[in-house]
Design a protein around this nucleic acid. Structure first.
Lengths: 362, 362
DNA sequence: TGATCTTGCAGAAACGTGACTGTCAACGCG
DNA sequence: CGCGTTGACAGTCACGTTTCTGCAAGATCA
């Protein structure tokens, strides 16, 4: 009781430990721990006294020690797929940023924090941080990181249904096939005769599912597929592909672009070829960006609702971490939203909301 | 030696501890630790043997235990200023996303990972994660979180020079005043007679410095200030403010917008008023987005070089963490870059690079 | 050949917390 | 008055590392 206020070893001069609090309050370490954590059976007077002393000393429990003891760190890994040299496509598409933001927010509300980690990385980075679970965005086919994490018994929830036999705990995704089919129908309804697709060369499930849905739709309605594929992580390649698509002899009169920048790229290409939008060319792209509300003309976009996805992924993951999850793997589908603007409507709407036409039209 | 392969307590069934490795390799715990960490004096044969056994058992050292022992967690906090209810402006502007991406990448290259944390948060979230240091983006005047972190002896480096007497360890920033003055001169050179400003109502140093630089420039050249301010976190308010600015009786013939979406908003407003860009209205905005390369017309943007800032912030912070820093506080200024496009040039350039005019013009 | 030095490794003490077990007094009850 | 019960705390161990100290055995040297 002679040396209060300072840890017996000179560990960190500014920081008080639980021992210091116990000494200053005149109680034992156990009592301090119980008082601060709301456990044990203590009279309220003692509890208040201990809390007061702890506040006065500026006591903050050591996160490392607590993690070691309890086995819970309160940290969730967030893995973003990496394409080129740059380890992140964090900002490549507004989708990722929005999703990460929503996920961070949702995690925080439940007392967890997010750690940004690269999908492909050396083990030392992954094993140097104690994670309670991991969110994986768009995992590739046989992701070694995911396998390793699952092998360690950590819950892994993916944004985007896993390809192949990737053993994730759960996943959350949109119904990309339905979304593409809906857009193609929407364009056909607006009068499109030949719908083109701007797609990617990557092998992720989003690109794959969307492209096959397009091909199936073409087969069903008897249209020859008209599409250009490019590496989605290269913005210049996107502009080039958009130009190529409109330069084809079988030029489409409507285009759906799978990636965020496709809208402006297609618009620029259309201007180069003297095509008016939407009179000569109908346009839709998948994007979360608000710039498409004020382009000339405004462009119809498909939103994948990244906020809802990010929130859902975190809820499912934390449920699994805390043992609240159901036994069977959770598979959650979030609906997409088509934001219809001028670029996909042949005649500008006279009323703000047009009533659905009678369905018995051929 | 009888119970190898499994920890003596049933802590985590799948995970092997350092004791298991020692038992399986027939050496002591010390030897395992030294062999794996490259310390001590061991013959290469022993070192290899231990590593082999560790690999075979799939041994991963416990991050929590290592952190507790060494006092280093390898984690760096990343704090983003929070405006409205949403705890993050993570994606509000491409700047933040780019900066965060660069910072993550730079940190990872030096063996650190980033934890996303809100600027305003309850203590429990901050104290539940063991940080080695923190990056603060655009700290507000008397940020309690920063003070608390500094009080705990943690290095704090801010993106953006700190307002008031905020005791950060170091900061990295652009020279916003010089940037604004440069843009105003650029617009005046292009023939602008009355330059307007689209600015924010927030009190961060970026907005403050930029606005006062504008006002000083106006005073110097004898122009009446023409500006509209709006809460930068509200995208709709930005569109409204852009419209108001062009609706004024003293309508400017050139506008600089401080925030990312101002370009499209101003362009849309100009179309509504029948103003041609750049013939009737010169336009520049501060943005990292590439969409301004393919708008009609392409818009001149000021880049704050978020990648360089993010990288620099991390380097300075890690130097401070590892004790490599100089004694005096580091203050690093990153130059901005003006990307000149059609919207700020009255006559389209005949050559790709125009030589600077002779400076002895009044 | 003994004394000193180096090599190769083992033991054990922390790091700061949470949780289990134990102790001592007071209290109710027959 | 004796005994079991309960409240209110203290002691102590364990979480899994890192690292300091130290001890044997061989190498070197006078």
């Amino acid at each position: 009781m002679s040396r209060a206020e300072t840890s017996r070893r000179g560990s960190r001069p500014g920081r008080a430990g639980i021992r210091d609090v116990a000494a200053a309050a005149g109680v034992s370490i156990t009592t301090v721990s119980d008082a601060l954590n709301g456990k044990g059976r203590l009279p309220d007077a003692t509890r208040r006294h201990v809390r007061e002393v702890a506040d006065r000393l500026g006591y903050r429990p050591s996160a490392a020690a607590r993690t070691l003891r309890t086995g819970k760190s309160g940290l969730i890994g967030l893995t973003v797929t990496t394409y080129g040299n740059e380890p992140f496509t964090f900002t490549e598409f507004a989708y990722f940023a929005e999703m990460a933001r929503a996920a961070t927010s949702a995690a925080l509300a439940r007392g967890y924090a997010l750690v940004i980690l690269p999908a492909t990385s050396r083990h030392d980075v992954w094993s140097n941080v104690a994670l309670d679970g991991t969110v994986v965005i768009d995992p590739s086919d046989h992701d070694p990181v995911v396998s390793e994490l699952v092998r360690q018994g950590l819950p892994v929830v993916s944004d985007g249904r896993p390809a192949g036999t990737l053993p994730v705990t759960a996943w959350v995704d949109n119904d990309h096939e339905a979304a593409v089919l809906g857009i193609l129908d929407h364009l056909a309804d607006a009068g499109a005769r030949r719908i083109g697709l701007l797609t990617g060369t990557t092998t992720d499930t989003y690109t794959h599912l969307s492209t096959t849905a397009y091909l199936r739709w073409c087969e069903r309605v008897g249209q020859d597929p008209v599409y250009e594929a490019y590496p989605a992580h290269d913005p210049c390649a996107g502009a080039v592909a958009a130009d190529r698509l409109l330069a084809r002899p079988d030029r489409p009169d409507a285009v759906y672009g799978l990636f965020d920048p496709n809208g402006t790229d297609l618009l620029a290409a259309a201007r180069r070829y003297g095509l008016r939008v939407p009179e000569d060319l109908l346009l839709v792209c998948c994007s979360e960006s608000t710039v498409y509300a004020s382009t000339e003309p405004p462009i119809t976009t498909l939103s994948l609702k990244p906020r809802r996805i990010g929130t859902a992924v975190i809820q499912v993951l934390i449920d699994a971490i805390e043992g609240l999850a159901s036994d069977q793997p959770v598979e959650q589908v979030i609906p997409t939203e088509l934001i219809v603007r001028t670029s996909s409507q042949r005649r500008p709407p006279r009323t703000t909301v047009s009533p659905p036409r009678s369905p018995e039209r051929e």
